[in-house]
């Protein structure tokens, strides 16, 4: 019985690989885009403009305060009502990028705010422009605070990508649903799905830990 199930599972491995590929592809694209957007939003949010800062804050709160499943449904099912047709993959990328950007924005804001005021004043006093202050003085120091939680957030977002199966994208989770219809052993199938996610996430978890240790030991500890 188990032997038969394993045999038919082995037959599903091309499908499983496709699912894994979709999960990795979705995660990779939206994490790269989300990181860029998240840094941009974080920098804008800590900039001087109160209106921009307030708008970003409201958007981030809204996204953080609603379930991802709802967000993805809104994007996939509601936007077409307004004439914006999206295929499932694009909708998935948009939803996941937006989610990533909002969480990363908060991490970046926390990092930027952790840089002592004196650092900004020193940069200001020597005539560095806003962009130069950010690039040369603030961000390098903020990165020490940002990197470990950023990588941790990547892990969470890769796992959140499983929600895209709800709009019909054949990612790792949806492959699980498909396979379990043929091989009626949910425990085994979703155990293997879990292993698939873990294989993708574990290197990142290790990386986050390494970064945390290295950041603690590196030069440039701000000492007062």
């Amino acid at each position: 019985m188990i032997w038969q199930q394993l045999q038919s599972l082995a037959g599903s491995y091309p499908l499983a690989l496709r699912g894994l590929g979709m999960t990795v592809m979705l995660s990779l694209i939206s994490l790269v885009l989300g990181t860029l957007l998240g840094f941009g939003l974080g920098i804008l949010r800590t900039g001087g403009n109160r209106l921009i800062s307030g708008l970003i804050g409201a958007w981030v709160d809204l996204i953080r305060g609603t379930p991802f499943l709802v967000q993805i449904f809104l994007i996939f099912f509601i936007l077409p009502e307004f004439g914006i047709e999206l295929d499932a993959f694009t909708a998935g990328i948009i939803a996941l990028t937006n989610l990533a950007a909002c969480f990363i924005c908060e991490i970046v804001v926390a990092g930027i705010r952790s840089v002592p005021t004196g650092q900004v004043e020193a940069a200001l006093a020597s005539g560095l422009s806003r962009l130069q202050r950010m690039r040369q003085v603030v961000l390098p120091q903020a990165m020490r605070i940002v990197l470990p939680p950023l990588v941790g957030q990547y892990v969470l977002l890769i796992k959140d990508s499983s929600v895209v199966s709800a709009i019909g994208l054949t990612d790792l989770t949806r492959v699980g649903w498909l396979v379990v219809q043929r091989v009626p052993n949910g425990l085994l199938v979703f155990f293997l799905v879990g292993v698939g996610y873990f294989i993708v996430c574990y290197p990142l978890i290790m990386l986050a830990r390494r970064l945390e240790q290295r950041m603690g030991a590196a030069h440039g500890e701000v000492q007062l």
Binding site: P116, Q119, A122, R144, H219
Partner: peptide, 9 residues
């Protein structure tokens, strides 16, 4: 500055 404010990195 009183607290130097050198760039630590």
């Amino acid at each position: 500055f009183q607290s130097f404010n050198l760039y630590p990195h």
